[in-house]
């Protein structure tokens, strides 16, 4: 891994600012389109971009990635299990 390290760092500079541009554009698109399903998709897409690029999850082992994803899914699950009692359908 240390052999490819220097090349990896050079490439990452550019990829961070590409990720930044994508996040800004995505934010602008989300403001103008207010469909609930689209907004939820946009939030999840932004999370994946931040997690994979900024937090380097795409370079981590699968076990760490899935540990993190499981934590996030659990947070979503908390809402899903209680929302039925609100008497309103979700989407």
């Amino acid at each position: 891994m240390s052999d490819t390290h220097a090349a990896h760092v050079e490439a990452s500079y550019r990829s961070y600012w590409i990720a930044w541009a994508i996040l800004l554009v995505l934010t602008l698109v989300m403001i103008s389109i207010s469909t609930k399903a689209f907004l939820i998709g946009g939030i999840l897409l932004k999370s994946v971009i931040i997690g994979a690029w900024f937090m380097h999850l795409k370079h981590e082992r699968a076990i760490l990635i899935w540990s993190v994803v499981a934590g996030i899914l659990f947070a979503g699950f908390l809402f899903l299990v209680i929302h039925f009692d609100a008497g309103t359908s979700l989407l």
């Binding site: 600012w17 930044w20 996040l23 800004l24």
Partner: peptide, 10 residues
């Protein structure tokens, strides 16, 4: 905040 995240990554 997004921009500060990009500067942090840099």
């Amino acid at each position: 905040l997004i921009t500060s995240s990009a500067t942090m990554a840099t």
